[in-house]
Amino acid sequence: MNKTMKWTSAVLAAGVLLGGSGLVGGTFVNAAATGGNTVKQATQQPSVVLKYKGQVLTQQGKIVDGNTMIPLTVLRDAFGLAIDYNSTTRTYSVGSDSMKLNLEVSDYGVSTDLNGYYIYSMTGNHEAKMINDRLYVPFKLLNDYLGIQGVYNPVQKSLELSKLVMNDIKITSVSLDKSNKNATIQIQYPKISGLTDEVQNTINTAFKKEAERFASEAEKEASRRDGTIEHKYDYSQTYVVTFNREGVLSIVVDQYGYSGGAHGGTIREGHTFSLKDGKKIELKDLLKAEPNYKQKLDKMLKQSTKDVAFPESTGGLTEKPAFFVSESGLAIFYQQYEIAPYAAGIPTYTFNFSSILPKGTNPFASFK
């Protein structure tokens, strides 16, 4: 099947515009699962003392369904990140470039994206919540995408927040608009700076070629649109940085296309590079300390996918596994329909490196 025939959209929904501590916001939930209902008020939740640079913050976190939630205003008051508001689009933004978190408020609620890439639970719970008229974001979202780490003290019930040490590079977006009378074609791809010319050119060329190839495929498919189809075809590409530390850069690219029918389709690609030489990192490079990593991963994946995979699918390790690196570990994913029905989305399973590699092994040691 042609790649552009597989792209899909996801359902956005949910939240309410409410005031609180100089900031308004809402929650992002799955409308299909909730019928469009949103969390306006929460029952009493256990509090978490928040600390930054050894100082106790006046604002506290909450434990909700086992997830530590942080007031969005902590990013402003503790980390010094400005929170901007666009009254035209009703969007709150914090951060910049590839780490720019956007919360767009509508009559249906608030959707969450990072520099245009809508965040769903690829590696865990990333849903913001409205608690007592204040917007809270999961610590996991901050840790996975905004470069913030935390150490929890169970005795004091406190979370010490700090900044992760990131690679000394800058990641900006390049826009490619190839829209025409037959289709809307809007593409975003990353551009890296701060490395040697040779290394950053190698990485940037790979992302540029991927974007141009997608645009060409979209234009070709759209050219076959006939007069019986009133609507334009729709194609878009977005990306998100999932890991940017220890000499390693991992980025997920989603390519979406819709040319009619009940829904479109999404193709996801994971790209992981060594910033030392610009070479693409493969699984064997990350897991070379474990000779039996394929057997280990195969067993772990079969166990993880058994409840969602098609009866005829083993759900194990494929010949060329699709993966990316995140703060949570190694994420293996399958394309839509590859092992499960459309409703399963893009099945993604994350494993801590310590569950695969010998004790004390650093998978990134050779890339520093």
Rank of each mutant, 00 (worst) to 15 (best):
N2M: 09
N2K: 11
K6E: 08
S9W: 12
S9L: 13
L18I: 12
S21I: 12
G22S: 07
G25C: 07
A33G: 08
T38N: 14
V39N: 09
T43K: 14
Q44Y: 10
P46E: 09
V49S: 01
K51S: 08
T58E: 10
V64T: 12
D65Q: 07
V74T: 04
A82W: 00
T88Y: 13
T91A: 12
Y92A: 00
S93F: 09
V94Q: 01
N102M: 13
V105D: 06
D107P: 04
S111R: 15
H126M: 07
E127K: 13
A128T: 12
N132G: 10
R134A: 04
N143Q: 05
Q156D: 14
K170N: 04
L176K: 07
N180F: 00
N180L: 02
N182K: 12
N182S: 09
I187M: 00
I192F: 00
V199W: 00
Q200Y: 00
N204A: 02
N204R: 02
T205V: 07
F207G: 07
F214L: 02
E217L: 15
A218P: 15
S223D: 14
R225I: 13
R225T: 11
D226Q: 08
Y233F: 14
V240G: 04
L249N: 02
I251F: 13
L286P: 08
A289K: 07
P291S: 09
V308A: 07
V308Q: 03
A309R: 15
F310M: 04
S326D: 05
I332S: 01
Y337M: 15
E338F: 00
I339A: 04
A344H: 03
P347G: 04
F353Q: 06
F353P: 10
F367T: 01
